[in-house]
Simulated assay, not measured.
Amino acid sequence: MNRLNSTNPVVKYLKDNIGIIIALVAMCIFLVAFPTTRTTFMTGKNIFNILRQNASNLFLATGMTMVIILGGIDLSVGTVIALSGCVAAGITTAMGGETAGAQAVAAVAGFAACIVVGGLVGMFNGLIISKTEIPPFIVTLASMNITKGIALVYTNGAPIRCMTDAFKFPGAGYVGPIPVPVILMLVVFVIAVLIVNRTHLGRHIYAVGGNAQAAKFSGINVEKVKFLVYTYTGIMAGIAGMVVASRLYSGQPTAGDGAEMDAIAAVVVGGTSMSGGSGRLGGTLIGVLIIGVLNNGLNLLGVDSNWQYIVKGLVILLAVYVDFLRNKKAGR
């Protein structure tokens, strides 16, 4: 029986993530027990609201997990949300259409362009990072400013409104009782898990993150791995931009501000080491839920938004400190 439990993936998952699972459960118990949030937190409407609002964070966090396992960072994903969303709204409104069919075609074209924009920014980051010795922090910081500037120039600093039903569907639509972003979130997560756990690329990501030089000597194309991971992260940011723009019924040049911080927080809280080489998407999923419940709980408690930044900053610091202690104990 013990041997069966040791190889059971569910049992292993619970053991590997017991600390953050306890933290998530404790937060939920507090919000259920607290008088102010007792009747509002644990409702179907609010749970779906948490998942819908944090779908975009999961998209970013799946890519960010791979990047951080690789030993890098991507600060540009937040501004890619803004730029890709603005492009999607701009193309959709420019194509227009009087009939529902024409509007759907316009929305599909806009969303396709949205994902392409994200992929292009990711390729730009991946190409420079893989071909040069410039630190990923500097490269993605530069692309963050570039993409933000392009979004502001493209929109003249004003939102691009788009109110068609087809445009609103990915971010605000439903399939039965389930919000579309929640369905997209599950699909993206499953695909990311398969990439990391069932492909050569996934194994190579861990190898490069653990020791890039050794990975290169073993025959792994380190440059290709870095390029693909940053491209994937850009595509995820493009999809997040699509969902955010759709939910807001507009492309906003300021959308996604600070989104990279929430994604990094979710990844680190989920147990991925900032030193690279270790981490699991299963932990990232719980990290996204923790950040989502934290944001939702603070809002329900009426905590001022300025204080919320302080709380989230402390959570990130605590998670990094725990990671430091874990690495120190492991002798890394």
Rank of each mutant, 00 (worst) to 15 (best):
V25K: 06
L300R: 03
N5D: 08
G97F: 10
G282Q: 10
E223I: 04
V269E: 02
I81R: 04
A61F: 03
L120I: 15
L325R: 13
A214I: 11
T155R: 08
G209L: 11
T37A: 10
A23N: 04
L285M: 13
G234K: 09
G256T: 05
D165G: 07
N54F: 07
N156G: 15
P179T: 08
N125V: 02
S278N: 05
C162G: 00
Y309N: 14
A23T: 14
D262V: 01
K224E: 06
Q103A: 13
G276W: 05
T92E: 03
I310F: 14
P179D: 05
L294V: 12
M261R: 07
V116I: 15
C162S: 04
E223S: 15
T132P: 09
K329L: 06
Y13R: 00
I128Y: 07
V322A: 13
R161N: 13
R332T: 10
G276M: 07
P170E: 08
T40E: 09
A207G: 08
T233A: 13
A88V: 05
A266N: 01
I178P: 02
L314I: 13
M42P: 06
D74P: 04
I21P: 02
D16R: 08
A61M: 05
R247Q: 14
L184E: 00
A94T: 12
T147Y: 14
V190N: 00
L228R: 13
D304C: 01
S246T: 12
T199S: 11
M163P: 01
N306S: 14
P159T: 08
N299A: 13
I18H: 01
I128K: 10
T62A: 02
L194M: 10
P35E: 11
F124W: 13
A142H: 04
T7I: 14
V244M: 11
N221W: 04
A192P: 03
T272R: 07
N17A: 01
I286C: 06
A166Y: 07
V269H: 01
T43F: 11
M66D: 04
G171V: 08
A55H: 03
R3C: 02
E260V: 09
G126H: 08
A207K: 06
I286S: 00
F111R: 06
F189N: 00
A259V: 01
V303A: 01
T65E: 09
S273M: 09
R332M: 11
I115A: 12
R161T: 14
A26R: 06
I291D: 02
C86Y: 03
